[in-house]
Design a protein around this nucleic acid. Structure first.
Length: 300
DNA sequence: AGGGCAACCTGGGGGC
DNA sequence: TGCCCCCAGGTTGCCC
């Protein structure tokens, strides 16, 4: 369950079970589940889990040694705590068992974009994080998240606002749903160029992204089906509060205009064509490299 | 250096 | 019923 609120929901579930557990068995049932370039998962058998941490959409378990277990849910990953004798999903990829525990950790992932790894910790932005996620920026839920720093990074990018929101190296944690929701709340069209937006508007987008993710976290995240669930198998309820994402053709909750969906940056973007005015295209010819915006054969 | 795209997968749903 | 195409919440490598 991909975006920050969903990953944080998972983290909170894991915190209730994992800390202080000693790992005594690890089964890797699919080769892609132990990320390429990672140490073998089995190398941490015998260690004890200390904490469950998160930055953006990456989770990691610190251990009583210098490496950590890192995980990413990809598009369809789940982390469940279940009784060792409970029936298995056909998409179970990794099982971790603990000394003296009746429950076990299961990593389930239909589309296999998710993974677990064993990684060294390195220092990044005032935090010790595993190497495999040291390239991403802090997320807005972090205690020392610096809004002005994030704003500066965002403002310096020469690209459209939605692309930048999805870029985890600027602000981490925001994915396709909350990017659309943040832009709807801010009344800004996803294809707006950052250089044409004011600092005030950019600040508003970041604040709205933070707010919408916080609201969602309060309801256990957004889920549309049972692919996206917490460690106990429960679905979140934020989907009913979405204002733009997944609402193509439905009336905008502000003005009633039908929400539009466009394909952009290889994914769907949902917005209100009235509240979120399209940027004026190409006011300065030749300013951008070769026109790449004409060839999206989106119709039919 | 930074931006943008295709590739990595499986499965569900709609149209014909 | 079956086939085919489209769609899906993410990240990354590689090309430009």
């Amino acid at each position: 369950m991909p975006e920050l609120p969903e990953v944080e929901t998972v983290r909170r579930g894991l915190v209730n079970f994992l800390p202080q557990r000693r790992i005594n068995e690890i089964q890797v049932l699919h080769p892609r589940a132990n990320r390429k370039g990672s140490l073998p998962l089995k190398s941490v058998i015998g260690s004890r889990i200390l904490e469950v941490n998160r930055r953006g959409k990456f989770l990691w378990f610190t251990l009583d040694r210098t490496e950590a277990i890192v995980g990413h849910l990809g598009m369809s990953g789940q982390m469940l705590i279940q009784p060792t004798n409970a029936p298995h999903s056909p998409h179970t990829r990794v099982i971790i068992r603990f000394s003296g525990a009746k429950d076990e950790f299961r990593f389930i992932d239909q589309r296999t974009f998710g993974w677990l790894a064993v990684d060294e910790l390195v220092e990044s932005e005032n935090l010790w994080v595993p190497k495999s996620c040291s390239h991403i920026a802090p997320d807005p839920f972090e205690e020392n998240f610096n809004l002005n720093l994030a704003l500066g990074k965002l403002a310096s990018r020469k690209t459209e606002i939605k692309r930048a929101l999805l870029n985890q190296e600027i602000i981490s944690g925001i994915g396709n749903i909350y990017a659309d929701e943040a832009l709807w709340r801010s009344k800004i069209h996803p294809e707006h160029n950052i250089e044409r937006l004011t600092e005030k508007e950019l600040r508003l987008v970041i604040q709205n992204a933070t707010k919408v993710m916080r609201d969602s976290l309060g309801r256990g995240g957004t889920s549309f089906d049972d692919l996206y669930i917490d460690v106990n198998g429960q679905s979140g309820y934020f989907a009913i509060s979405l204002k733009a994402y997944g609402r193509e053709g439905e009336p905008c909750k502000r003005c009633g205009t039908a929400i539009r969906r466009i394909t952009f940056a290889n994914r769907s973007s949902h917005f209100c064509p009235t509240c979120q005015k399209a940027p004026r295209t190409r006011s300065k010819p030749g300013k951008n490299r070769v026109g790449n915006r004409n060839r999206k054969g989106s119709s039919r």
